[in-house]
Amino acid sequence: MFVVERTVKLEKGFIDIHKEKMNEYSSIFKSPGFVKREVLISTTNKEFDLIKTLVYFNDKKAYYVWEGSPEHIKMHKEKKENPVKPVGVISVERNYYEHFITNMHE
């Protein structure tokens, strides 16, 4: 599996707005090779909050299919046409991983 990790660092007080956005439907859910999306939230830091999104694809090729899809391109085109920084966002970091192993309780 191929995993895309996106970490959004937020100012305190903006987590609920972003949680609502994460609950909205995304066209990625119907992309060929999409497996699942996990959203993790951390509010333990006194200065900022974190939202970590892990998106799983069958393989790297499936991710590139999504990245090149008309839906994905349209989404980024709209962001370029309206380059307003999302409210409360301090920074965004993206990383890519090849899934190695999952251990589970038996």
Results as ranks from 00 to 15, higher is better:
Asp16His: 15
Thr102Ala: 04
Lys19Trp: 11
Ala62Asp: 05
Phe2Val: 01
Val4Thr: 08
Glu47Ile: 06
Thr7His: 03
Arg94Ala: 07
His105Phe: 10
Lys12Trp: 10
Trp66Glu: 00
Glu78Arg: 13
Glu20Gln: 15
Glu11Leu: 15
Lys12Val: 11
Ile17Arg: 09
Lys60Asn: 04
Asn95Leu: 04
Val84Trp: 05
Val4Cys: 07
Glu71Asn: 12
Asn45Arg: 15
Val4Phe: 08
Val35Ala: 07
Glu11Tyr: 12
Asn58Ser: 06
Phe2Thr: 02
Ser26Leu: 14
Leu54Lys: 13
Val87Trp: 06
Ile73Asp: 03
Val65His: 06
Lys61Phe: 10
Pro32Gly: 04
Lys30Glu: 15
Gly33Trp: 08
Gly13Trp: 13
Ile28Asp: 04
Glu67Ser: 13
Lys21Cys: 04
Thr7Trp: 03
Arg6Cys: 04
Val92Arg: 13
Pro70Tyr: 02
Tyr56Phe: 15
Glu24Leu: 12
Asn103Gln: 00
Glu71Asp: 11
Val39Trp: 07
Asn58Met: 12
Phe100Ala: 01
Asp59Leu: 03
Ser69Asn: 02
Tyr56Gln: 05
Lys9Ile: 10
Ile73Met: 09
Glu71Tyr: 09
Gly68Met: 08
Ser27Phe: 12
Leu40Gln: 06
Phe34Gly: 04
Lys46Leu: 07
Met75Lys: 13
Pro86Gly: 05
Met1Val: 09
Lys74Phe: 09
Glu81Asp: 07
Thr44Pro: 01
His76Met: 15
Tyr63Glu: 02
Phe14Trp: 14
Val8Arg: 09
Phe57Ser: 02
Phe100Leu: 05
Glu78Asp: 11
Gly88His: 05
